[in-house]
Simulated assay, not measured.
Amino acid sequence: METPEAPPEAPPATRRRRRTPALIAGAAVLGVVAGGCVGYLVQADRAPTALPSLSQPSLAQAEGAGPEPLSAAQDRKVKTDGDLRKLLLRKPAGARKPLIEVANDGWMDLAAYAEEFQSPDNAFRRLAREDELRRVAVVDWREGSTYTAEIRLVQYRETERGTQAADDAGAGNDNAQPPDDHTTDAWPIPGTGDGMAYVHHKPDTTYGVGVYSAEAHAWRGDIAMEIWIYDTKPIPKAKVMDLAKRQMEQL
């Protein structure tokens, strides 16, 4: 009797945006054609992860002058365990509400974030179990009719293996890898180690209007930064690099 073959293992979650770029590109086209058309993105109505208390227990001091405790501004752990949305860059003056909102009150839940991957079901399981995703804070805005910027701070729980943030922003992440077609320029983000910014010169013409994109990926501690920019005009290097450097300074 033949031994039945074992079912194939599920492929690893591919870290490449799947849904939002198409919707933003479509919204950009609507902005060109109809001006004020508003897109939509269905979001699961979940509350963000409850935040831990910012208060620190009092510690008994040994005799003699000991070191002064770190202030909240100096203690990065206190800073990143607070309201993560406060670490996001502020929207530029005059910026408008994006045609498509990808978050609920500045938060994107696990189900919505998993929808950004090519295999959402597999991504959901991996993010929840192996990668220990904790929360995702988002700020996005629109300038003019078609320029859209989105910044995400993706925070992971610390485990014995460390955190997933470095892998999320590093060489193992398909998001952080430019296509091998010589249409993308890449530059390191100063002060971030292996952080990289990319400008894609080949527009997406799926929707009848060319939509250009740029992105940036870096990490610090347990937080991975993602920046996504879309426009119907070529996006200059200075635009994405400025956002990336200023956002990383906030961390």
Rank of each mutant, 00 (worst) to 15 (best):
P120T: 05
W219A: 15
E130M: 04
I189K: 10
D121P: 07
M196L: 11
P190A: 01
I151Q: 05
H182F: 08
R126E: 15
N173K: 06
K233L: 06
L251C: 00
V240C: 04
T159A: 10
A171Q: 11
T206H: 09
H182E: 11
L133H: 09
S53Q: 11
K97V: 05
A62F: 11
P234A: 01
S58Q: 11
P8C: 08
H200V: 05
R129E: 12
R18S: 08
R161P: 00
A13Q: 01
V42P: 13
Y156S: 11
V33W: 09
L70W: 13
V38H: 09
A224D: 02
A47Q: 13
A244Y: 07
L84V: 03
E158Y: 09
R96P: 01
M196Y: 05
M1V: 12
R18M: 06
G35E: 10
R96M: 10
G144F: 02
S53I: 06
R46T: 15
T232Y: 03
K86N: 09
D174P: 00
R19C: 03
Y230A: 13
T206K: 12
L41F: 15
G82S: 13
A73M: 07
L127Q: 10
E68R: 05
L88M: 02
D180H: 09
I229W: 10
Q164P: 00
R220G: 11
R19H: 01
D167A: 14
K233C: 02
